[in-house]
Design a protein around this nucleic acid. Sequence first.
DNA 1: TGTTGTGAATCTCTTCACAGCT
DNA 2: AGCTGTGAAGAGATTCACAACA
Lengths: 213, 213
Amino acid sequence: MASEKTIGRLSLYRRLLDRLLVQGKSHVYSHQLAALAGGTAAQVRRDIMSVGYSGSPTRGYEIRELIRCIGNVLDDLHGAGAALVGVGNLGRAIMAYFSGRRPHLAIVAAFDKDVYKVNRVIHGCPVYSSDDLRQVIAEKKIRVGIITVPGNQAQEVADQLVSAGVSGILNFAPVPLRTPEHVYADDLDVTMSLEKVAFFARQKSLEKEAVKP
Amino acid sequence: MASEKTIGRLSLYRRLLDRLLVQGKSHVYSHQLAALAGGTAAQVRRDIMSVGYSGSPTRGYEIRELIRCIGNVLDDLHGAGAALVGVGNLGRAIMAYFSGRRPHLAIVAAFDKDVYKVNRVIHGCPVYSSDDLRQVIAEKKIRVGIITVPGNQAQEVADQLVSAGVSGILNFAPVPLRTPEHVYADDLDVTMSLEKVAFFARQKSLEKEAVKP
DNA sequence: TGTTGTGAATCTCTTCACAGCT
DNA sequence: AGCTGTGAAGAGATTCACAACA
C-alpha cells in the first residue's frame, strides 16, 4: 500500500499532468515531472510504480493514461462529497476554492451555528444549521469532514462528525484532534507552518550574512 | 540543529503550554504534553532536548521556563514581520487569524493588485499596491512572505518576494514554488491535503466494512 | 544514447529501553 | 515509584546505481 507521503505527491502529480495535457503535451519523463513537482526523478518513478502503471523507456509516461491510473488509486469510484463545518472567513475561502474544481471531490454541505448564515447557498453549496449535521451527513452519505471553526470548538465538532459517521477529517483549527483509530485525521496547522517558515528564514539569513560578512 | 519536524512540533507545544498556563498549571510531564499534541512521550522529550532545557524527574517540566526556552529557539530576538500577497478570501482569512495573535510574528504588510483594495487597513494591517512590494519590504525589513494569490500568479509573486529580499515563503497556492537555495519555502497545499484525507477515509471505511460484513 | 523499474544502500525520524535521579 | 535524558535499535522514506530495454 502506498504511503501517506506518496498519496500526497500523487495528488500533486495529477494536477501537474492536467496542466501539461492542457498545454498539448502527450508524454512526460520522470525528470520533467520531478522538476515541476520539486522532487527527484527517482522519487517520481517510485511513486508512479505504486499506481501500477509503466512508462516506456523511449517516450516516458503517457500523460493521459497516467492521470487515469492515479485517479484509479485516489478517487472513489462513486465520487465523494465532503462537509465543511464553520462558515467563517477561512471556511468561505475554502468553499470558494473548491467550488466547481474537482467534481469527484466537492464540498456538498456546509454547517454553521449562526442563523444568519444557514439556509443560504454559498459558492454553490448549501449551508445548514449545525443542529442538522448528523442528519444531513447521513442522508448525503458524506465520509469526509473539513473543520474551519475556532480552536475551542474544533474537538467538539470533530466528535460530532465522527459520531455522524465520517471516516476522514481535515482540520484547520490550531488544535490537534483526538479521533478514534478508525478515523483518519490530518491537522493543517497554519500557525505551525508560519512559525516554521519564520524560523528557517532566519537560519537562511544568518547563513547569507556568514558568507558575506 | 533541530530538524524541520521538530521545529514544527515546538511551535505546537508552545501553544499547548500557553493554554496550560492559562488553566493555572505550572508543571507538565512529557506524557501529558504528548497526549495533548497527539504524539509520544519519548518524542516530546527528544524535541525538548533540542531547546536545551531540562526538566525535573519529580515535577516534570516547568511550563513558564519551557515556553521561554522554546521562544529562544523559535523567535527572532527583534520580532519578525511577514508580508502577505493576495488579499482575496484566503488572504483575508489568514490576516484575520493572525491579527493580534502573536506580536513577535505579525503580518505587517499586505499587497494586492486591485486598486479597490489598496490603501486600506484590513484586520489592522495596511494594504499596499503590489507595485510597491519591493520598496515596502525593504523599508520594513520583512523577511517572510505569505502567498495567497491564484496558482497562475504564485511563481511570479515568489520571484518578486525573493528579489525583494525575503528568505522564507509560505505558499498557499496549489503550485510548488521554485526558489533559490538561500530561500526556505513551504508549500501548504490544501487540495493535496483534502485528497489525502479522502483517500484514507475510504481506506478506513473499507477496513470497517471488512470487519463487520 | 537516454530512459524506466527496482534492489540495495543511505539517510532521517521515531521508538525502545534503561541508567540516573529525586 | 515514576519521571527525565539519551544511546541504541528500529522503521520509513529517499536516493543511488545499474540491468534491461527501445
